[in-house]
Design a protein around this nucleic acid. Structure first.
Lengths: 338, 338
DNA sequence: GTGAAAGCGCTAACAT
DNA sequence: ATGTTAGCGCTTTCAC
C-alpha cells in the first residue's frame, strides 16, 4: 500500500491535520507555516504520496464521479457524446463511468441502482422510456440530466436536438434534388423505435415537409422498426421491399445503423444500391462522403449538447433547481446534390 | 441520505453485524437464524436500503472498479472495445471508467495517477508509448493489461492482433485482384504513427507481401503520418499526391480514420475517388460495403480480445503472475472483388 | 445465534 | 501555528 497521511505525519512528527492541510493546499487558510508546508510537500513528493480518494469520498460524501448511460457505444453519435462528456468531466476533476444499456429498461434501472450505490455525484442518461427518470429520481434527487430524448419531463434538464425542423429540412433538401416527376416518386422513411420522442419528431417533420408536395399518398411509405439498429434496418428494408415491388427512389432513415442495415438489405435483395437512389439519414458519418449516391445527412451538434448538459449538471450540483430544455440545432450536409 | 446498516440495526434492535451478514448473504455461514435474516431483508427491502459502496470499498481495500484508457472513442474500433469490456466487467460486478487520452503520454500518465488515487482494481490501457507501462506499474503492481500495442513488455499481459500476417493477406488479396500490369501499378500505403508496434507490423507485412511481386520499387510508396487520425490521413494523401503526380491504383491505409482522411483528400484534390482505385484498410466498417470501389478490410476480433483481456486481468487479481501475449487473428473482408 | 468494537484513510471543527 | 479527535458506513474478528 501507499503511504497514508498518518504515516507521513508520524514520520515528520507533525499531526495529520497539518499534513492534510498542507497537501490539500489549505495551508495558507489555516495558517500552517511556510516551512512546515514545504517540508511536508517535499516529503510527500519524495515518497510518491497518493491521496486515497475512497477515504476522502466517504468523509466528504462526494465521490467526484459521474456516470453516463447510453444505448450503445458502437453508435458513433453516442460514442462521440461519451468522448466529449468524459473530457468535460475530467476538466472539472470528475471521473466518468460509461455504460451501455442497449435500450433495455431493466438494464438501465439496474445500472442506475448500481450507480446510486456507488454514490456518484450525477447521472447523465439517454432514457429508454418515460418512467426511467421518475424511478431514478428516488435515488438521484435531481442530480440527473436527460439526453437526446424529450419525454416531456419538465422537472429535469433535457438536452435534445431539433429533430422536427431538421427532418423538414432534410426532406425538403432531398425533394428539391429529385429529378423524377413528383407523381412517380417513391419515397420511403425507415424509422427506428417510434416510441422515442426523437423518432416521433423525425417522422412528424417528414410528414409536414411532404404536405402539398404532390407526391401521391400511395407512394409515401413510413416503415417503423423496433430499434435504431443495423438488424432492424435490414429487416425494415426487407419488409418494405416485400410489401411493394417498387424500389424507392428516395430513402430516409432515422439513424446511421438503420441506414447501414437498409443499404445492406438492398445489396442483398437486388444486388446493389442503385446509384441514383437518393439517400438521407439522421446523424452523420464521414463515409457518407464517399458513396456514389446523392446523400444528405443531419448532423447533431454534440459539442453544444455536452456543453449544455454539463452546465445543467453544475446547476443541479449547486442545488439550483431551474431545469431547462436545450434544443441544439442540426446541420444539414448534402453530397452529390445542390 | 439513504438508510445505513446502523440505522436498520437500531430500528430492528439487532446489531450491525447481524444486519451486515444478513444483507450480504452470509447469514447461513454465520448461523444467523432464518427468522432474523428474513426480518432484516424485508425491512431493508421495504425501506429501499442501498449499500454504500464507498464505505465498503474503504473497508475492503477493493473498489470493484476498473478503468480503460483508449486513444479515442470516436474511432469505432476502440468504441467497440470499450462497449464490450464494460459489459464484461459489469457481468463480474465491476464498473468501468472509460477515458480517452488522444495518445498523449502526459494525459495518459495523469489519468493513470488519477485512477491510482481512486483505487481502481485494475487498468486496461492502450499504451501510447513503451515507457507508460513501466511508469504505471509503480501504481498498479501488475494489475494492468495492455491492449492493441505490443512494445515487447513481456512482464504484462498483452492483447494484440496479428497485424503482420493480416497485412500480408490484405496486400496479397488486393494484388490478386489487380487488373493492371504489375509494372504499371502504383501502390500507396498510408500509415499512422510508425512508432506504434501495430503500425510497424502492418508496414512490415506490406513489404513482405510485395517481395517478388514484380511491382517496381519506384511505384511503391509508404507514407507515414504522425497519428492514426482523419486529418493525418488527409495530409498524408495530399503529400503523396504532391510528391508524385500519379494517382495510386491501390491504396492501403492503417486505420479507418486515415482511410477516411485519405479519401477526403482525393475528393478535394481530384474531385472524386476513382471508382477503379483499389482500396484496403485495417479495421472494418459497415459503410465500406457501399463504396463502388473494390474494397478490402481487416477486421479485428474484438470479442476475442476482450475475453482474453479480462481473463488475464482475473489472473492478475488472483495474484497469478503468468502474463501471456494473446494474438487475435483478423478476418479479411473483400467487397467488389473475388 | 448474536453483539461489541476496531479500523479502513481522510477531513475539519475545536482545542491549545 | 499546530494537535486531538470524531466520524463518514462498512466488514469481520472475537467474545459471549
Amino acid at each position: 500500500m501507499a503511504k497514508t497521511i498518518e504515516e507521513i505525519a508520524s514520520e515528520l512528527s507533525v499531526s495529520t491535520t497539518t499534513v492534510s492541510l498542507a497537501l490539500s493546499g489549505k495551508a495558507r487558510q489555516y495558517r500552517i507555516s511556510m516551512a512546515t508546508e514545504e517540508r511536508i510537500k517535499a516529503y510527500a513528493e519524495e515518497h510518491g504520496y497518493q491521496i486515497n480518494h475512497t477515504a476522502r469520498s466517504l468523509r466528504l460524501q462526494r465521490t467526484d464521479t459521474m456516470a453516463l448511460i447510453v444505448p450503445r457505444l458502437s453508435n458513433h453519435f453516442f460514442a462521440s457524446l461519451a468522448e466529449k462528456l468524459e473530457i468535460r468531466c475530467r476538466d472539472a476533476g470528475i471521473q466518468l463511468f460509461v455504460s451501455c444499456c442497449y435500450d433495455n429498461p431493466d438494464t438501465q434501472l439496474q445500472l442506475i441502482q448500481n450507480f446510486r450505490q456507488r454514490n456518484i455525484d450525477g447521472l447523465f442518461v439517454v432514457p429508454s422510456n418515460p418512467q426511467i427518470p421518475e424511478k431514478a429520481n428516488r435515488f438521484f434527487k435531481h442530480r440527473m440530466v436527460l439526453l437526446d430524448r424529450d419525454f416531456g419531463l419538465r422537472d429535469f434538464p433535457v438536452i435534445i436536438t431539433d429533430n422536427k425542423n431538421a427532418s423538414i429540412s432534410l426532406t425538403e433538401k432531398i425533394l428539391a434534388n429529385n429529378a423524377k416527376a413528383a407523381g412517380e416518386t417513391e419515397i420511403l422513411f425507415l424509422a427506428g423505435n417510434p416510441d422515442m420522442p426523437s423518432i416521433k419528431a423525425r417522422i412528424s417533420g417528414f410528414e409536414t415537409a411532404l404536405k402539398g408536395k404532390k407526391i401521391p399518398e400511395k407512394n409515401i411509405r413510413i416503415v417503423t422498426v423496433p430499434r435504431n439498429g443495423f438488424n432492424e434496418g435490414t429487416e425494415g428494408m426487407q419488409a418494405a421491399l416485400a410489401a411493394k415491388k417498387a424500389i424507392p427512389d428516395i430513402l430516409l432513415t432515422s439513424s446511421i445503423p438503420v441506414f447501414e442495415g437498409a443499404l445492406h438489405a438492398l445489396k442483398q435483395q437486388i444486388g446493389e444500391v442503385p446509384a441514383t437512389m437518393m439517400l438521407a439519414t439522421f446523424d452523420d458519418h464521414t463515409m457518407l462522403d464517399f458513396l456514389p449516391n446523392p446523400v444528405c445527412s443531419a448532423k447533431q451538434d454534440s459539442d453544444h449538447m455536452i456543453r449544455a448538459a454539463y452546465d445543467e449538471m453544475e446547476k443541479l450540483i449547486k442545488n439550483i433547481h431551474a431545469p431547462q430544455t436545450h434544443i441544439a440545432s442540426l446541420k444539414i450536409i448534402a453530397r452529390n446534390m445542390v
